[in-house]
Write a protein that binds this DNA or RNA. Structure first.
Lengths: 272, 272
DNA sequence: TCGATGTATTCTGCTATACCGAACACAGTT
DNA sequence: AACTGTGTTCGGTATAGCAGAATACATCGA
């Protein structure tokens, strides 16, 4: 009579699931790391169980530990850096697009990101930070809601309406700021407009004061394989500025599409 | 009476260890991914066991699967991108140093990398690719032998001799190219020279035709907390060029040291 | 110096669980 | 349509993983 508060399907392994919980708990831990007890509490197991999990993870480099006197603090290990890099590189598009991201950042002086659709979410897989000490980079690999992000909109904008609605219904459209679009009809109108332009805006819809401009990358099949975006402060950007950036972003996206053998924006049929 | 071909300590979990094997196998898989059977063979378990492991990993996003007809190919998932990014960001130094890496790449037009010492190995935790289509980036998070890398040498160059020898003895000094330094005495002489200069070379010692120039970053304690390097082709670079790059790299490393509150190269005592 | 207190680590036994082998389902192929 | 190579499910069993208790260790305070 297990509680079974967690397990989903029938062929899942408990200890492994808990180990993944440990990794995610350590990932969202702030500061120096977590102790065995904190990990145990975070994932709801006994200290000895947490200890075993951590021992195994440490032995393989997935977690690293710093001894501070009698205490021991655990944090994510460098083996994960390697796997994360391999996971991103395995997508292929990363390899091709990242040099172009570099150029986009060089010409715009803005942070640029590359993202793909994963289970409906927008997930950034590569990033080139703007020069200067502006920490606006945003983490890689995090699942972001597509209705309030420029890359999310870019990835969805040419999808058939029923697929868009399915995603939005499944993930919801929570309000993140005053500007967030929270109605499906309104968002679809916004997406159709973006589709004809070839670039999408996040106009302070996710974070106040921050805007993003995104465009889609198309592969041989004509599907949106990825999207890229630049991020900047709203602060004194006119609407003209945003459209001008839209042209630039779209042209770099087209460049990547061509590298993939896919169509540029101008070559696409109007969306159904 | 277990075979125990794998397990190290006594508090390690078998299924978890196998799952980590799966991830590493998928990481080094080329192409589209691996099937259940390939995974099973790679880690030495039955297909049903591999299936359970993969099910659990897929459910959590650590592995993603692409169905191709009746076949199913597994690859590393995007959750790992997130964890890897968090693991690198958790080091703190990454956050501080990466903008400076950007500047270093901007001024030199070369790929730059940031690395730390992990268990004696040099491990890159951040990277800024050179502009242009030159694919010379080198993977993140991979454990690299320190005796034939510029960052490895930079990290070791001010260590006491017995610690250097301990690392070299433990990891070995395999020959990678004609130029690789394979004797401890010779390498220590090279390191001491690098320590007085403040920058270290990898002069085709790891890959033929490729050179790196590295320098160390010091924290408040005066220990080398990290190292950075630029990578370029040997092709027609004079010795003067390399020293000039050495000055540049060292000055950027010093800049990061100062951000950390540590001493610049010029402020350090001669190494014992 | 010596407890007191909070950790981490080790031990122990029970039982659920993860494992394997084998059976089944499903596609693509000849 | 049978064949062949997959992926997926099932069932029984040994064992591996779990929790709780006992121990070791360190830091802090008196």
């Amino acid at each position: 009579m297990t509680e079974a508060a967690n397990s989903d399907d029938k062929y899942t392994l408990r200890s492994l699931g808990r180990a993944l919980d440990v990794l995610q708990a350590l990932g969202s831990a702030s500061g120096m790391g977590m102790s065995v007890g904190e990990v145990a509490d975070a994932i709801g197991v006994s200290r000895s169980t947490a200890f075993s999990l951590l021992q195994t993870l440490v032995a393989r480099g997935f977690v690293s530990d710093n001894r501070l006197g009698g205490a021991r603090l655990y944090r994510l290990g460098l083996a994960l850096v390697h796997l994360g890099d391999q996971a991103a590189a395995g997508l292929g598009i990363t390899q091709i697009a990242t040099p172009v991201l570099q150029q986009l950042t060089d010409t715009t002086q803005l942070t640029s990101r590359l993202a793909v659709l994963d289970d409906g979410y927008a997930v950034a897989i590569s990033r080139v930070d703007a020069p200067g000490p502006f920490r606006m980079s945003g983490s890689l690999g995090r699942r972001e809601l597509p209705h309030c992000s420029a890359v999310g909109k870019s990835l969805m904008m040419r999808l058939p309406e029923e697929k868009i609605m399915a995603i939005l219904t499944r993930l919801g459209m929570p309000r993140r700021t005053e500007q967030t679009i929270t109605s499906q009809a309104e968002l679809i109108a916004d997406l159709r407009l973006a589709a004809v332009r070839g670039y999408a805006f996040d106009n302070e819809e996710d974070n106040v004061g921050v805007i993003c401009i995104g465009a889609a990358i198309y592969d041989r099949t004509g599907e949106a394989a990825a999207a890229l975006s630049v991020t900047t402060m709203k602060l004194g950007r006119s609407e003209d500025d945003m459209h001008q950036l839209g042209f630039v972003v779209r042209s770099y996206a087209d460049r990547i599409s061509q590298l993939l053998g896919g169509p540029a924006h101008a070559a696409l049929e109007p969306v159904a």
